[in-house]
């Protein structure tokens, strides 16, 4: 139901603004780079030490010494730069990066996010996510509205170990665009063909619905 992962990325790309530096997390967020509006300039920062990240290399031109934070081979655009991990996180904590897009296992209505650990089951680590969410002024979470078992990931409070507190401002899921404020989720847009009732049913946290909720628009 609702958007594909590509469409979630496409919707998030509409949030990009001219001259922004942007950090994209692993998974759906990485796809955002494919949908940058043509009339704006943005630069992508990869926290392993790369600004001005370009698309995947042409087959045969991949370089083991040029990867993104997801360990995928990438390219560097003209005007790009390379640096060490301490400088990279100085950019992040120092709020020189305007937007962070990352995935999540759970988001709560107070802006808490959990995305790094399921106790006893899955422990991958937080990577750079804790630094990113603790510092970014502008954080968008890209994720599916419910988990594989059909349970809501949009919650009153997170049940999993937290990655950061009171930090998420906006969530784009396969069903909806939600804004987090006043300790609640505000429904801003619906995915094409998805009803408000369906979004309500898939949302465990407090959902505020004000007036007519428009459908997302795609070009």
């Amino acid at each position: 139901m609702g958007l594909s992962k590509q469409q979630i990325a496409q919707r998030i790309a509409q949030e990009l603004q001219h001259n922004w530096y942007v950090n994209l997390g692993i998974g759906i967020p990485t796809l955002v780079a494919n949908y940058v509006p043509k009339n704006i300039d943005v630069e992508f920062q990869s926290e392993n030490g790369l600004l001005g990240m370009g698309p995947f290399p042409i087959e045969g031109e991949e370089d083991a010494d040029l990867i993104n934070a997801g360990k995928q081979t990438v390219t560097i655009l003209k005007g790009g730069s390379l640096f060490d991990s301490a400088l990279s996180f100085a950019m992040i904590r120092g709020q020189h990066v305007q937007l962070t897009v990352l995935g999540a296992m759970e988001v709560a209505q107070n802006g808490d996010i959990a995305n790094w650990k399921i106790p006893g089951k899955l422990v991958k680590g937080m990577g750079g996510a804790m630094d990113l969410v603790a510092s970014a002024e502008n954080i968008i979470v890209a994720m599916m509205h419910t988990n594989k078992a059909g349970e809501s990931k949009i919650l009153k409070s997170c049940s999993l170990p937290l990655t950061g507190v009171n930090c998420v401002k906006k969530v784009v899921t396969n069903l909806a665009v939600l804004e987090i404020k006043n300790n609640a989720f505000y429904l801003i847009e619906r995915a094409p063909g998805v009803s408000v009732e369906e979004i309500k049913a898939a949302t465990e946290g407090d959902l505020i619905i004000e007036g007519e909720i428009p459908e997302m628009k795609f070009e």
Partner: peptide, 28 residues
């Protein structure tokens, strides 16, 4: 956290015994 790891390494070599960072506040 990755940035904390990087900065702890840097601090080690730079003669800084400890530092404050926002990363991980409110988490385990």
């Amino acid at each position: 956290p990755q940035g904390t790891l990087a900065e702890r390494c840097r601090a080690t070599g730079a003669g800084i015994p400890a530092f404050y960072t926002p990363a991980g506040y409110g988490t385990e």
